[in-house]
């Protein structure tokens, strides 16, 4: 491996880097072994540390190994949050291609969806504050234009005259730029259309955050702040399980709900019924009815990301 091709691995702080001064795979394994020794000395189970470092990619894990891994996480978080936490690994449902519809003629910008999402998906509440949905207030005069948009509006009542509101979240693109740039395949698109992230595989390089044209990906710059009392214990490995510091996260269409047949949390909370969700492959589904009957568009169509998130005007 030449210097040019190396991944930007963090330097080993103990100074036992390879002879070339950089960090090679061998150095990494050596560090891992050292980590195991340190863990043994410090009282952690060494096999757990080594196992974690030697884990295979999620899509290559055997069922037994996956169940074992989920069990460990459940145990850890049940103790940490003082309630029975379940961590599922729900597979995509065959014959389902999810899509989302948002009625711009109905949305009033009340941000109920933002906070229902935070609650359902165990986002960090503050420092860092992480929200997967960003509601943009735009001018009717200018139409959908990011140059005339702000997420920081704070009047007493919404909607304000002369404005409309456009919530933006992960658009679950058919050609996602974010998964393309991930150097470690920590994020990929599942067959049901949902772009998922393995938070344990993410190295925190934030290439995906930069690649996303919708600002949908959020980075945990500090240890997430999730109060135990507010923690949602029904979680999924690729969805709303608690995240560590230094990883990227985003909307997953609430896969811990939608892959169980339920509506995402933002759909259920919306007081004006602006949010529609369903299976694109089912002609009777609400989303297909929207596409058949209404004027539909996708955000930043010119980028050819082909979102599975559609905006529409019902009136």
């Amino acid at each position: 491996m030449t210097d040019r091709n190396r991944l930007p691995v963090v330097q080993d702080p103990s100074g036992c880097a390879g002879p070339e001064g950089g960090a090679s795979r061998r150095d990494f394994l050596r560090t891992a072994a050292a980590g195991a020794v340190i863990a043994a000395v410090s009282g952690c189970k060494p096999d757990a540390v080594v196992e974690e470092l030697q884990r295979r990619h999620l899509t290559e894990l055997s069922k037994e190994r996956l169940q074992e891994m989920l069990g460990k996480l459940e145990k850890k978080w049940s103790a940490q949050y003082g309630k029975k936490v379940t961590v599922g690994a729900r597979p995509p449902i065959p014959g389902v291609d999810f899509a989302y519809g948002l009625d711009l003629s109905r949305c009033i910008g009340c941000r109920r969806c933002v906070y229902a999402c935070v609650k359902e998906n165990n986002q960090s509440r503050k420092n860092p504050q992480i929200q997967w949905i960003r509601v943009l207030q735009m001018d009717k005069e200018h139409g959908v234009s990011l140059q005339h948009a702000t997420p920081y509006y704070d009047p007493e009542k919404v909607p304000e005259p002369g404005h409309f509101y456009m919530p933006v979240q992960c658009q679950q693109c058919r050609h996602p730029p974010c998964t393309k740039v991930c150097p470690v395949k920590a994020t990929w698109k599942d067959p049901d259309g949902i772009v998922v992230i393995d938070y344990d595989w993410c190295i925190g390089c934030r290439c995906c955050t930069a690649a996303c044209p919708y600002g949908a990906r959020k980075f945990n710059w500090a240890e997430p702040n999730l109060p135990a009392a507010e923690m949602n214990p029904v979680t999924d490995y690729l969805g709303n399980r608690p995240r560590p510091m230094g990883v990227v996260e985003k909307c997953t269409f609430c896969l811990q709900r939608s892959r169980d047949g339920r509506y995402p949390a933002c759909v259920e909370i919306c007081p004006v019924g602006a949010r529609k969700f369903g299976n694109l492959l089912d002609p009777e589904s609400e989303i297909r009815q929207v596409m058949d009957r209404k004027r539909v568009f996708v955000f930043k169509e010119e980028l050819a990301t082909e979102p599975q998130f559609y905006y529409f005007y019902a009136t």
Binding site: C110, V114, Y153, V158
Partner: peptide
């Protein structure tokens, strides 16, 4: 009209 939730 509704009172909005706090801005980010």
């Amino acid at each position: 009209a509704l009172e909005p939730e706090p801005p980010p």
